[in-house]
């Protein structure tokens, strides 16, 4: 077997299918998107090369920057929610009763499709029949919020299901990582008189730092390109109050027939994600991995 695997031709043969699929399905479209971004194109007729005009327009497009702000807000909220997930995972991994059951409960939202979650939360937020407003009415609040129809609230109203949706995913990752922390270290710390808080903060956290970094990148990049739930629940409305980069890109490309401009937004989003990933890695890569 070793002989087979060291043969360069065999290696090439094995890598080839995945390589071809990646090229055709991922990299070539990326290059094409970059190319379309330099065009004035309605997506149907003839293309016209306009250089970087689409990107100049992007920089001056207040609607784009508004949606970019919303995407960044979502990214910030996702990072904050990671703290919450981490705390829950620490509790769950602390051998409490029924940890397994809780873990499953948190995981369920992840198994639902975004569209189903969107439908569910649209019911919850319904201005007259929704669970939320019925509850508020029943405890005596008369001027109940309009949730998805209120431009000041709608963005945060959508963040809640998004954060709820991904809770299980991150809790699962943290939980698995925490379970891998060697028991001896925890035991030793306990014998030395460390409090549970100290065990969590000083021993467990540093040991799973690598996983935490990965989840931060996942959460930020995932937020920046987030689309589906928002699209189903509000389509970016009312009047752009819940517009994010991806939904704005979609609207430009498919609703307004500005395929060239839409491609430029998409390409910009890609660059943005790469830059943000790089920044996060720089910020978090200051120390060596902790090993005990």
């Amino acid at each position: 077997m070793n002989k087979v695997m060291s043969d360069k031709k065999v290696i090439a043969l094995y890598v080839l299918p995945a390589f071809l699929l990646m090229m055709v399905l991922v990299y070539i479209p990326i290059v094409l998107t970059g190319y379309y971004g330099l065009m004035r194109w309605d997506g149907i007729g003839a293309m016209e090369f306009i250089g970087l005009d689409n990107y100049k327009r992007l920089l001056n497009d207040s609607m784009f920057w508004r949606s970019a702000t919303h995407s960044l807000l979502l990214a910030i909220f996702s990072i904050l929610s990671l703290v919450g997930y981490l705390i829950i995972s620490l509790v769950l991994a602390g051998k409490i009763k029924g940890a397994d059951l809780f873990r499953k409960i948190y995981l369920i939202p992840m198994l639902l499709s975004s569209v189903a979650i969107a439908q569910l939360w649209m019911r919850i937020y319904h201005p007259t029949n929704g669970v939320m407003n019925r509850f508020l009415t029943s405890i005596g609040i008369e001027n109940t919020p309009l949730w998805l129809a209120d431009t000041n609230i709608v963005l945060y109203a959508i963040f809640i299901p998004i954060i709820w949706q991904y809770a299980g995913f991150y809790i699962l990752i943290y939980y698995a990582a925490l379970r891998n922390v060697p028991n001896e270290l925890v035991e030793a710390a306990r014998i030395d008189g460390a409090t549970p808080w100290q065990i969590g903060y000083k021993i467990k956290l540093p040991l799973i730092m690598g996983v935490i970094k990965v989840t931060i990148v996942l959460a930020v990049v995932g937020s920046l390109k987030y689309f589906d739930l928002i699209w189903v629940m509000t389509q970016g409305g009312p009047n752009g109050a819940s517009e994010v980069i991806a939904s704005y890109m979609y609207k430009q490309a498919f609703n307004s027939y500005n395929f060239g401009y839409g491609s430029a937004i998409g390409f910009f989003l890609l660059i943005l994600c790469l830059v943000v990933t790089w920044i996060i890695r720089k910020l978090t890569a200051d120390k060596e991995e902790v090993q005990y």
């Binding site: 649209m122 319904h126 201005p127 309009l146 129809a149 709608v154 509000t234 009047n239």
Partner: peptide, 21 residues
Amino acid sequence: FIRGFNGLSDQEAKSEFMNGN
């Protein structure tokens, strides 16, 4: 107009009408 109309889809509005609301 019905409460929260800017957040309701036409489908949801229709069902309010068809339920006599």
